[in-house]
């Protein structure tokens, strides 16, 4: 990583904690889906109201596609969760997580005029917890911590060594 950001210890610890907590949340969401025998994204997609409602309808109407979406959703959540906790491929995990959460948000956004048959578990207007989590993950991506608290450091060192070797040969 070329950019060097300097954090105080407290800043670093806060960021790492946030990263791990979000990772924990997404990992458990994935694991729960994996272990619920009847789980399907069908109910969620059915409720879809906004820009993705046509897409959702198409997914529902096609059994194979729905199956694929269920699979990708479950394993996507597990992979992102693991990445965030371990600090492995953190940037990819954080960006994928942001994208996934923004899709969730766009499927059922609490906008004025959109009514849902299942009520939200809190009171939201435009901003929901999902949107906040998405932005928090974006922050994790732009304020990287995994080169100190994470396995990414090993990947970084491996890359650096390779680079140095190349320099040596050229030199």
């Amino acid at each position: 990583m070329k950019d060097t950001i300097k954090f105080t210890s407290l800043q670093l610890i806060t960021l790492v904690t946030l990263r791990i907590l979000i990772g924990w949340h997404l990992l458990f969401e994935g694991i729960s889906k994996l272990t619920s025998p009847g789980w399907s994204s069908l109910g969620f997609l059915k409720e879809s109201k906004w820009i993705f409602s046509d897409l959702s309808q198409w997914i529902i109407s096609n059994g194979k596609v729905l199956e694929a979406v269920n699979f990708l959703n479950t394993w996507g959540l597990i992979a992102i969760g693991l990445g965030l906790i371990l600090g492995l491929f953190t940037r990819v995990a954080a960006f994928s997580g942001t994208l996934l959460l923004l899709i969730y948000y766009s499927m059922n956004p609490p906008l004025v005029g959109l009514e849902y048959s299942v009520p939200f578990e809190g009171n939201y207007l435009i901003v929901s917890k999902t949107l906040i989590e998405a932005v928090a993950l974006m922050m994790i991506a732009f304020f990287p911590t995994s080169l100190v608290f994470g396995l990414d450091i090993f990947i970084d060192r491996y890359r650096n060594r390779k680079k140095e070797k190349n320099y040596t040969i050229q030199g």
């Binding site: 791990i20 990992l27 458990f28 906790i85 371990l86 100190v148 608290f149 396995l151 450091i153 060192r157």
Partner: peptide, 27 residues
């Protein structure tokens, strides 16, 4: 890598252990 840095890099592993323990507990 200094020992301390190594431990820092591995921070996720005990967290994951705790996670697995809690999931097992809940199940």
């Amino acid at each position: 890598l200094k020992r301390r840095s190594l431990l820092k890099a591995m921070i996720g592993i005990p967290v994951l252990g705790a996670f697995a323990f809690e999931v097992f507990n809940k199940a």
